[in-house]
Each structure stands twice: as C-alpha cells, then as structure tokens.
Design a protein around this nucleic acid. Structure first.
Length: 725
DNA sequence: ATTACCTGTCATTAA
DNA sequence: CATTAATGACAGGTA
C-alpha cells in the first residue's frame, strides 16, 4: 500500500480533481498500474469489487452516466447529480465563482510556515489555469497546526455565503450522507487529522457548509491510522464529497463510500488538506506536496501518461461510436479501460468544442442491440470509420458518451455510415444496390474487419492479477537455477528448448497457460484470452508488470490456493525427506530423472512418492495445456463463426448485387428484343405480330423469328434472320 | 446456502 | 512395457 500511496501522491488525485472541477470525468483506474486494483477498490476495499457501481456500464445512460440499477439510493444520487450539475453549470457558464484557490492545501513539514489562502484572494481563477498554477497551489500550502482558530473562522465565514445557496434539500442530502458515514464509523474529519507518524491525512474535501474542518477534537486511531470522528460534527466525509464531486467513483452508491477504511487507504505520506470554497462548488481534495516530485513534474507525468493513453486509444478499436451506441456492452472489461485524459461524459467549457464532434445520437442503437462488440467492429468497420473521421486528437476523447448535451456534427455522418451499412445489407438482400456503393463499403468492411476482430479486444490480461504465482514461480525459479525442464516464462522456455526439447507443448504453453502468469505480460500478447474466463480486473489497465508483487484479490486467492495445492506434494516430499526438489522430479526428462533416482538410495515409499509427484506434476501441466487448448479451440471457433458470418454477409451482398445485375441485363435484353422485333418486317413490309411471332435465341448465337405456334419445335426455322448479337 | 468458476487430481486412452 | 500427453470427470477451494 505504500507504493499505492506514493502513486496517489504523485498528482493523480490533484489532476482528477482539477478535471472533475472542470467537468471532465476521468477514469482514474485507467492510470493505475495493472498490478494495482481499481482505484475505487483501493479506496473502498477489495469487497467493493462486488458492490461497486460499474460506472463504465453507466456510460451512455440517460445523462451520460448514471447510477447502478442496484444502487440503494437513487434519490441521493439524483440529488448529488443535481448538485454536481449545478457546479459544472457554473463552469460551463464561465462563472468565475469556481474558485480553485479556495482550497487550503496542507503541506506538512517540519517547521512549517502557516499560511492560508481563501477563495477571496483569487476569485478569477479559471479551471484552465489550474494546471500551470502549481506554484500558486504550492503557495497555498498550509499546515494544520499553523492554522489559527481565527483562520478557521475566517474560512467558515468566507464559505458561508455559498452555503446559503444550498437548498434545504441539499442540506438534507449532505446530512443523510454524513449520517451514513457515521453509521459506518467514518467521520467527516477523517481527512483533516494528521497523525504523528505523518503518514495520514492529505486531503480534506468539504463544502462550504463546513466551518469545523479543523476541529481539534478529531482523533486518529493510533494503531490503524484511521481517523475517528465525532458524530456531532458536520463536515462532509471524503466519500460524500467524492460522491458529490463525481470524481469517477461509483456514483450514487453511498454505501460504498461508507467503507470505514478509505482514509487509511487514501492517505499517502502527506499532510492534511483543508479546503473551503464558495458557492456550491464542493472542493475536492488535494494531496500535500510531500511527494518527491513537485507538482510540475507530476503534471508532466500525468500528461505523458495521457499521451500514452491517447496513443493506445488511437490504436485501439475502442471508439466513441461503439461506446455511444452500445451502452449495454460496456461491461466488456476493456471498455472502461479506454483511458482518456480528456474523457468526459460531462462536457466542460474547455473540452466542449472537441466533444461536440464526437457525440453520437443514440438513434442507431436499437438496430445494433443484438450485436456484440466484435460483431460491430468486424461488421461495420468502426475502426476504420473512426480512424478516418476522427483526427487522433479527437480520438482521444473516446469516452464521451453524452450525446444529449451538445450538437453532433459528425453524428450525422456516422449515422449515415452506419445506416448505409445497414441499408446496404438490406438492399443487398433485396437485390437493389449499386455496385459502387457495395464495392466501397465492402472495401471498408474487408479492410478493417480483420483488424477490428483482433484489436477490439483489449490487451488486458484477464487473469494476470488472479493467476497464481506460487507453484509456477517456484517451479520456474528452481528450474532456471537447475537448468531443468520447467514452465513459466518465455526466456526459461527458450533455455529449455535449447537444452531439451522433450516438452513439446510447453514453450507455447508457457505463453498461453494461465497458470504460468507470474508474468502477466504474457497475456498482453494474447488478446483473445481476454474473452476467456472471468475477468476480475475490470478496471485495470494493461501495463507492464512491475517487480513489486502486488497481491490483488486474485493473487491472494490463487497464491493461497496454490500454496496449499503445491504445498501438498511439497510437504509430502519433505515428510519423506526427498533429497531433491519437486521441480526436478517433475520437470527432468526421463533419463535424467532415472539418473537422479539412482544417485540416491530411496526407499520404496520414497520412490513411490517421487513417481506420484512426477505424475501429478506432469498431469497438472497437461491439464493446464488441455484447458488452454480447449479455450483456444473455443476461441478459434468463435473467430471462425464471426468470419463465416462476415463471409455470409458478404456473399449475400454479392448475391444481391448479382441478382440486381441480372435484372438489369434482362431488362436490357428485353428492350433490345422489343427494338429488334419492332423493326422486323415480313415480305410485304408489315411488322410481325408479337402475338404470333417471337424471337428465339439459338445455341449458336443466332436469333430466329418463329411463329409462336411453332415454339417448342426449335428445329424448324420458318423464317430466319441472322443478327449476330 | 447456493452458484459459478478455477485448479489439481485421478482414471483412462492413445501414441 | 514404460512413459507421456491428452482428456473427461470429479473434488476442493474461492468469491
């Protein structure tokens, strides 16, 4: 958790807060290393994985994002939304009452110099200025200890006018939220208290109602670092503020925010941050500047992160069209992972111009409701479309899914494209489609269908965090030391292949097998595996694994389980005093294995155990291979089905085209027939009656005029006119 | 308590 | 015949 704290200190939260205030919604989890659990899980605890509001799935709901249907408190959600919307409306309207400097950022340092800056000092701050105003922010750092009661009162007084704007309903909401926290043992002042170990309390969200944010009665649990609040205080908790601020946490799910441990999880090594603000803008929290990086560096880091994410997005087939059109499918693990620095479902004044272009009406949605993501991507070639239609910088705004807010210049185009595609198929089926259109669209479809098929899948490791490490780790490590046959990592497998090719499937297996995922990067090369099994890492971002082993839920689970599993034979071997490792027993080739057995004088029981261990170990790997193969088979079949579906669509289209072409040709022939027939004259110069005569085509290409009475008697040629066609 | 899923193990078969 | 891979079936654990 230390690394986590460090990470959080490095500006992530500040940035999110800034963006949030600007009305930009950011998926914090997208920026977290893949080995870390999702941020809300970090904050709320692992169990939140099951209770969380999957905000990814909320995108595309009524107002761009919404509340989980299971949320127990929709009323509070909507109230919160209303408050938030009002705050953001301020921003959109460029009302200069959004006062960033109203936050009092605490920087805990020895011999710190107290200073405070209230909202009145810089009333003209605009959100755009925030990123560059690090020095000013730093200037606002204050120490809790240094703040006098007067200052507190002053803060309260400063904030007071804003509070008067709150309706009774809002106040009630806040009170309700607060009581919920109290029920769960979380106090509003949790984030204001700074314990003596200086590793707590770096943020203090609150709204202007709060004048007692620095209440000295706040206590910190000396053992856990958690803060104990008094119930008679009226400050907002972090969770409440988060919920009000909509800082990309499961929104509208107050119980989640009531987890009593967030303060412990959220506080890096920094001092408390107190803040006030005017109007209804609820100030988010800012970490104090105890991070080794200064704010500017943090900012740059974040920006570079964003750039990388943007690139990822640009290279990804995830696109706003799909996201917008298919809200129900956003449960796909990777959808939420489209990390968008400027991603927002709520458009601020800053980003609105860009987002306008990307919003897509929902109208086509019903027509695609039966398609899954891959179908869409493969069938409709969204990748290509978006790649063509959106410049890269626009692509970076993939997550925008609030079509209602702003007009949508491109939406029409895209809709046309989509509808064209649909109508194309319909037309093809109805045999009424121009070849030009067909060809063009066919090219589009064909050109990127394959790409989207593969690339629409996120490179996220489906089980990287939950995959086991203990057994395979020990196996691989000892193997690499001993140069024996094992399985786990690619390099090791290469060595193994060099020295011993006995294990045919293992090199490949080492890449695919979920069990050997001590290096989760394996899966990043196997995007198709993402579809397999259960991705419990919904919000995790694909990222190179770090050295530090972070035990996510999956890891904890798997390791514990595998410790027991692997430990079984290990314990038996130990109990029987087997003089060599199980890895050797399992992975050595037969010859070396027998040689090994001969080197030691083993009892019958020992020999039996060793052979059992070898059998089980090999069978274990075989089972893993088998399962992997099974999955591969299923996935390949899935791919094949998709391919065949595309092929069928294509052929249907082609058939329709051909039929249409045939109809045209028939018509032309008919016209030609009429023209020719009308020009025919008998010996007396009179036209032939179409009732009595008809032209017939002969097998040799001639056209003959035959009496209709003679039809069926092709041999006869009462009159003949050779008219080579 | 139930359920779905994961993983290891056993039994069996075939190479 | 021994070894091993493959695989279905089952059990135990986890969430």
């Amino acid at each position: 958790m230390l690394s986590l704290k460090k990470y959080l200190t490095e500006g992530l939260i500040q940035f999110t807060i800034l963006l949030s205030l600007m009305g930009v919604r950011v998926d914090l989890d997208s920026y977290l290393p893949s080995h870390l659990p999702p941020l809300h899980e970090i904050i709320l605890g692992p169990t939140s994985a099951y209770t969380q509001t999957q905000f990814h799935s909320l995108r595309g709901t009524a107002d761009g994002y919404g509340v989980h249907p299971k949320s127990v408190d929709l009323d509070q959600f909507f109230t919160s939304r209303r408050l938030l919307n009002r705050v953001r409306a301020l921003d959109r309207l460029q009302v200069p009452t959004t006062e960033l400097d109203a936050w009092l950022v605490h920087r805990e340092a020895e011999g710190s110099v107290p200073s405070a800056q209230t909202g009145s000092s810089r009333p003209t701050d605009t959100p755009q200025e925030r990123p560059g105003s690090d020095s000013s922010i730093r200037d606002t750092l204050v120490t809790e200890q240094g703040r006098s009661t007067e200052e507190v009162e002053e803060l309260g007084a400063t904030a007071q006018p804003g509070s008067s704007d709150l309706s009774k309903e809002d106040i009630d909401l806040i009170d309700i939220l607060w009581r919920q926290d109290i029920d769960l043992g979380v106090g509003r002042e949790d984030f204001l208290q700074h314990d003596k170990r200086n590793d707590d309390m770096w943020e203090s969200p609150q709204d202007d109602l709060q004048v007692d944010i620095l209440d000295p009665t706040i206590q910190v649990d000396g053992e856990t670092g958690e803060n104990v609040r008094h119930q008679d205080q009226t400050a907002l908790s972090l969770e409440e503020c988060l919920s009000l601020l909509d800082v990309n946490f499961p929104f509208g799910d107050p119980p989640e925010f009531s987890d009593p441990t967030p303060s412990d999880l959220l506080v890096p090594d920094s001092g408390p941050v107190a803040s006030t603000q005017s109007d209804e803008l609820l100030s988010p929290f800012l970490p104090a500047m105890e991070s080794p990086l200064d704010l500017e560096e943090q900012w740059q880091d974040l920006m570079s992160l964003m750039d990388m994410q943007v690139m990822d997005v640009n290279n990804s087939t995830e696109n706003p069209l799909y996201l917008s059109l298919n809200p129900p499918t956003q449960q796909d693990g990777n959808l939420g992972q489209v990390p968008l620095p400027s991603c927002s479902r709520d458009h601020s004044a800053v980003f609105a111009p860009t987002m306008d272009i990307l919003t897509v009406p929902d109208s086509p949605l019903p027509q695609f409701s039966s398609h899954n993501s891959s179908d869409l991507n493969s069938t409709f070639g969204f990748t290509n479309l978006t790649g063509i239609l959106f410049p890269s910088h626009l692509n970076s705004t993939t997550n925008i899914t609030s079509p209602q807010i702003l007009p949508d210049p491109l939406g029409g185009i895209l809709d046309e494209a989509l509808l064209d595609e649909i109508s194309l198929m319909d037309l093809a089926l109805e045999e009424g489609f121009s070849q030009v259109q067909t060809t063009q669209l066919q090219e589009e479809l064909d050109s990127d269908s394959g790409l989207s098929l593969d690339s629409h899948r996120s490179p996220v490791s489906p089980s990287g965090s939950e995959s086991s490490s203990s057994s395979s780790c020990s196996s691989s490590s000892s193997f690499s030391e001993e140069g024996a046959v094992g399985y786990s990592s690619d390099s090791e497998m290469i060595d193994q292949e060099d020295s011993d090719g006995a294990i045919g499937y293992q090199p490949e297996y080492s890449k695919f097998c979920r069990m050997s995922s001590q290096n989760p990067s394996h899966y990043q090369r196997l995007p198709f595996l993402e579809h397999v099994g259960h991705n419990h890492t919904y919000n995790m971002v694909p990222e190179e694994p770090e050295d530090k082993p972070v035990l996510s839920r999956g890891n904890r689970r798997s390791s514990g389980f595998l410790d027991r599993q692997a430990g079984r034979d290990e314990q038996r071997a130990r109990a029987m005093k087997i003089p060599f490792s199980n890895d050797k027993i399992i992975n050595l080739p037969v010859e070396e294995f027998n040689e090994l057995l001969t080197k030691y004088q083993l009892s019958e029981a020992q020999l039996c155990l060793v052979r059992d261990i070898r059998r089980r170990g090999k069978n274990k790997m075989a089972a893993q291979n088998c399962r992997k193969r099974k999955l591969d088979t299923i996935l390949n079949l899935e791919q094949e089905v998709k391919r065949l579906t595309r092929e069928r669509t294509s052929q249907l289209r082609e058939k329709g085209e051909n039929l249409r072409s045939l109809q045209q040709m028939k018509q032309e022939v008919e016209n030609l027939y009429q023209e020719v027939f009308s020009q025919l004259r008998d010996q007396e110069g009179r036209p032939y009656s179409s009732q009595r005569y008809a032209l017939h085509y002969t097998s040799n290409g001639n056209i003959v005029l035959m009496p209709r009475s003679a039809e069926g008697q092709q041999g006869r040629r009462p009159e003949k006119k050779d008219r080579r066609k």
